[in-house]
Design a protein around this nucleic acid. Sequence first.
DNA 1: CGACGAAGTTGAGCTGGCGCAACCTGGGCG
DNA 2: CGCCCAGGTTGCGCCAGCTCAACTTCGTCG
Lengths: 240, 240
Amino acid sequence: MAAVDRSLVANLPMFAGLTPTEQDELLREARSIRYSKGAAVFDQGAEADRFFVLLHGHLRVEKTTSQGQQSVARYVSAGELFGVAQAMNLTHYPATAVAAVDSIALAWPSSSWHRLIVKYPSLASTALQTVGSRLQDTQARVMEMSSEQVEQRVAHALLRLAKQAGKKVDAGVEIDFPISRQDVAEMTGTTLHTVSRILSAWEQQGLVEGGRQRIVLRDTHRLHSLAEGEEAVRANKRAP
Amino acid sequence: MAAVDRSLVANLPMFAGLTPTEQDELLREARSIRYSKGAAVFDQGAEADRFFVLLHGHLRVEKTTSQGQQSVARYVSAGELFGVAQAMNLTHYPATAVAAVDSIALAWPSSSWHRLIVKYPSLASTALQTVGSRLQDTQARVMEMSSEQVEQRVAHALLRLAKQAGKKVDAGVEIDFPISRQDVAEMTGTTLHTVSRILSAWEQQGLVEGGRQRIVLRDTHRLHSLAEGEEAVRANKRAP
DNA sequence: CGACGAAGTTGAGCTGGCGCAACCTGGGCG
DNA sequence: CGCCCAGGTTGCGCCAGCTCAACTTCGTCG
């Protein structure tokens, strides 16, 4: 475990509003940990003994029901606070976090949480905002799933991914980590077959560009109209 | 506005962990407001100038999409903290809260939030737990909507309502406020028609007892198996 | 460099539940 | 006391998207 320099983290939301001295104090209590692609940062159901800030990389957060149904809750990007189960009074992690690419995180023991928020109230505010914006996102997903067709939901999901983890590339915006059709299906509540059909149709229209575990958005504007239901690229149109 | 006695609120989560003196101080800054059935406590999109604790009654929290699609996000019961938009760094309420029955709430100005959590860190903890458990619930809903049939989702929704706001009655457990088929549909992402068919079928089996804006669960045990997908009371069974 | 497996594509058929429509019912108000 | 209407029920037909299945492509590991 290497010491982490303050300059690397000073502009993260979690450290904003703290003096350099306070930042150093906080950092002194943290460990920096490296996770290689595919490794789990924590597992659903495990004791929530730490909370984290992601320094580098991307994590996929997945939930599995008792019946074995799996679903992708969200992706975590660099700078975000995550694994704050303890702060919400949970004793165990409610989901699994897996490194989608090689990643680095800072970890604090959950037991310090209470002491830290008393000492640094801004920490509590940051956590509230983090959890609050997750709640917003999740509620948005519920509304999409109640009222939108699969095609719109997939469009929304891709646009959200692009906003959160989009890398500008000559052909458009590329999702910055490997993501399968199955992953997209698990984010939108559909099957990989349907996602595949939709992406194929879109590719024909020049809306996206696919590939193995790879999605590039070529026309975010039209994807937006699709997402808002202003038009539709019917995927199962029958040839006459 | 009447002064609120500490003894009425001392055992609410929000006031736990505070000394009687602190409780009094907090109360002194609050206003108590009465809402009659159907009145809005706040409207989606309005400036988030206050946060609340519900003292008595039940609220329905609804969200409407830009396309006009409405959905019920949750119900608030007595004792709960709500309307904490400001704490999540939102300037406007993301949903509308309507009194499902005559209700009473305590209100604080949002502008005091920051000062209060610095003074009473336990407030921040309470808020985090509140928001956290909402996040849990919402994520559970997403998973249900991805992997369950409508019938299971309705069963889950009713059981959740009963747990949160169930009143023991001779025939079983009654939802403690008026709730329409439409409301249930908006909680489960289906249509009032489908809910009606399902409840009718269940009523024939003696699982529930219906009525205008009224639902009584008569066999929570079988409803649980239904919710877990262990059996199914097919609603559209065709007569041979 | 061959072959095995993970990821993706595509076809065909079936069905849950939605949309539409007509109708019933009980509670409240004039 | 009778009318009105919000809330509820029910029948019918249709189709989006799921299931099942076969096949292709790509990457990687022995």
